[in-house]
Amino acid sequence: MKTAYNIDYLLDLKGEPCPFPAMSTIDAYDDMSDGEVIEVLSDCPQSINSIPVDAKKRGHEVLLVQQDGPTFRYVIRVHK
């Protein structure tokens, strides 16, 4: 699937149980610059209550949340 924006990073956390998907995603923001976009994959459905919430709390922009199968996808633009 094509996106209108460039995706700078991919973080594939499939297989990781809670809370590691959320913790690793927060850590990843530290390695990114303002305006960069990250795509996060997680098959821990509980991440729906953590990854988008954490992103917004830190002032980042949630571009996409996809939850139509066991693997969830989050695309986030980092604002610093």
Partner: peptide
């Protein structure tokens, strides 16, 4: 205890294939 997963440089306009089936 940290995941061994590394942040990958991607630089593309295409979403990853989830192989959901």
């Amino acid at each position: 205890f940290r995941p061994r997963v590394k942040l990958q440089r991607k630089n593309s306009h295409t979403l990853a294939d989830l192989h959901q089936g």
